[in-house]
Design a protein around this nucleic acid. Structure first.
Length: 312
DNA sequence: AATGAAGGCAACCGCAGAAGG
DNA sequence: GCCTTCTGCGGTTGCCTTCAT
């Protein structure tokens, strides 16, 4: 490709647009359409390159542009589509009438991305940060070592603890297996990140996301069934929660579904933890894989989680 | 009130693919 | 099939505004 930029001709104005320039461009396009962007500036009497005119039109002057803050529904749609499409801003914008790709990109970079990071999610994969998982084995080993040292240094305490050993060992084993399950999930995520072609992903998005006309909310949850689908990315969790909230189901134990992995101290079955193909091993190729009944830990798994702090 | 830092947004730049000759 | 031109997209930059000290 290597083609020279269209704006390298000297004498063409750059930088912010003046109201007069806006008016000229608006008038011209309303009268004649934009036609060829390259010739437009000359015909419209603008000392700008065509590229600059096109950008100004599509991002600012277009009459159907929606201004103002993004609604919660729009946020959810962006999060969901980004988890599937990645940085395909134009594709995401196509699902948000009145919003430009530039606006969505800016909103993502300045708000949503930071929020995900703050909540411990990788903004690219929408999954818990892998750097935490990378450090987890060492933390576990350290905790184990500390426990053994304490036991060895105090025989009386060791004897006392032996009394409740059966229960403790069982709990610790369960917790360990649960953590292994999480680690397994992280490894799977890393290994499979980036899979899937864009058209496929977009098709999947189209199938599961709101219509362009914006009937969000409950309908944004994948059609596969909110009842048996467990969230595995941030946006899915968000969608599931909001969906269930919309249905007034949260108060009747629906949150047990969303936060089933450890919410309230419940743990996945031990047999499940040993099986990499079960629900505790997330696959990143699609957010909507056939995980019928196994809970996923992602949405609520944080380093400061009571379960984790308790374990360590 | 002044100043520096951080945040937010508009616009630019360069690349890649499509279209046309 | 190759080359050139045009358009669109995503990443990045820089300016302006807001906030904190």
């Amino acid at each position: 490709m290597g083609r020279s930029p269209c704006c390298d001709e000297s004498g063409l104005k750059k930088g912010p647009w003046t109201p007069e320039e806006d008016e000229k461009l608006l008038q011209y396009i309303q009268k004649n359409g934009h036609g060829s962007w390259r010739t437009l500036p000359r015909l419209a009497g603008l000392n700008r390159c065509g590229k600059s005119c096109r950008l100004r039109w599509t991002n600012y002057l277009r009459p159907d542009i929606k201004r103002g803050k993004f609604s919660q529904e729009e946020e959810q749609t962006i999060l969901h589509l980004h988890s599937i499409l990645g940085n395909k801003w134009s594709a995401i914008a196509a699902h948000l009438p009145g919003r430009t790709d530039n606006e969505i990109k800016n909103f993502w970079n300045t708000h949503l991305k930071k929020r995900l990071i703050q909540m411990g999610f990788d903004p690219m994969t929408h999954r818990p940060r892998t750097d935490f998982f990378a450090a987890l084995p060492q933390l576990i080993a350290l905790a184990s070592l500390r426990g053994q040292l304490e036991l060895g240094a105090d025989p009386a305490a060791a004897a006392q603890m032996q009394a409740g050993a059966d229960v403790d060992v069982a709990i610790q084993a369960a917790k360990l297996q649960y953590l292994q399950c999480l680690l397994q999930s992280a490894a799977t995520t890393i290994a499979s990140t980036g899979g899937g072609s864009a058209p496929d992903a977009e098709a999947a998005a189209l199938g599961s996301v709101c219509s362009p006309q914006g009937t969000h909310g409950a309908s944004t949850v994948p059609v596969s069934g909110a009842g048996d689908h467990m969230p595995c990315t941030f946006s899915e969790a968000l969608l599931t929660v909001s969906n269930e909230a919309n249905q007034g189901a949260l108060s009747s134990g629906a949150d047990d579904d969303v936060f089933a992995c450890h919410g309230g101290g419940s743990l996945p079955p031990l047999s499940d933890a040993a099986n990499p193909a079960d629900g505790c091993s997330a696959t990143a190729s699609s957010s909507f894989g056939g995980r019928a009944s196994s809970p996923l830990p992602w949405p609520e798994f944080f380093p400061d989680d009571p379960f984790i702090t308790d374990f360590l």
